[in-house]
Design a protein around this nucleic acid. Sequence first.
DNA 1: GTTGAAACGTATCTACC
DNA 2: GGTAGATACGTTTCAAC
Lengths: 149, 149
Amino acid sequence: MDRLDREILRLLQNDATLSVSDIAEQIGLSSTPCWRRIQNLEKLGIIKKRVALLDAEKLNLGMTVFVQVKAAQHDINWLGRFAEYAAGIEEIVEFYRMSGEYDYMLKVVVADMKAFDVFYKRLVGGIELSDVTSSFAMEQIKYTTALAI
Amino acid sequence: MDRLDREILRLLQNDATLSVSDIAEQIGLSSTPCWRRIQNLEKLGIIKKRVALLDAEKLNLGMTVFVQVKAAQHDINWLGRFAEYAAGIEEIVEFYRMSGEYDYMLKVVVADMKAFDVFYKRLVGGIELSDVTSSFAMEQIKYTTALAI
DNA sequence: GTTGAAACGTATCTACC
DNA sequence: GGTAGATACGTTTCAAC
């Protein structure tokens, strides 16, 4: 993981459609060694996947909600069931175990308040939670998948 | 935006390396119309971009923090300056204006607590904030960029 | 207007230095 | 890390339905 690898990652996490020769040119290398570096970064799992990012607004998924929950039981089995349950719910796009007052933070993307209500009922109906609080995003000011490397 | 378009989006937001003919085959279409649909989805901005997703852990960026802040002033200029300021800080990967007690929610990705402290000082030093509270993620249980279409 | 097929140019990947 | 070449792919054009 030298400087050139980092430059490759920086380019690819902003635009995965760049051709190997484009990248090679930008970092000052010929195609093949550049291609080999990219292959290696993929083999190491540093590049996890390449995905298309969609416009949530245009797909009528303009509502983002942060849902904080407290565990009903503080045992590992409960977490396992919750994790498995959440993995299957497409509206939950991010899910973290947290320190502090609330045990879990979910980021949920839905169409509108009505859709959120459907999701909410499904969430609380599917697993026992002791406390749930929802914070609604009114505006997305920044969203990036690019890490500071 | 019919069923086939949605299927294309569903495939591409999970794997943007799929070739047009792969996608065409999976949705039961020939290459050319499939290619045209993809072009159109890009032209409409529904497909915003294609990016590489990196492994944060492997890049030593294992710490995710949700930072909630209250505005120092509730005027549009202050928000504009804050938005511009945050856009330039790579550690801030998501940024929302919120309803509720706190006005803004930031998602911050850093290496460790020391790096977070550096970020924190930069944040509070760069712009006037009236209240800041940080919640630390101990474990990422789910993360996806794929929307529920 | 929508599809399939064929042709061209370019990117990817292998073999070798 | 670099060079040359085979292969596969995306892209465009054209003809058929």
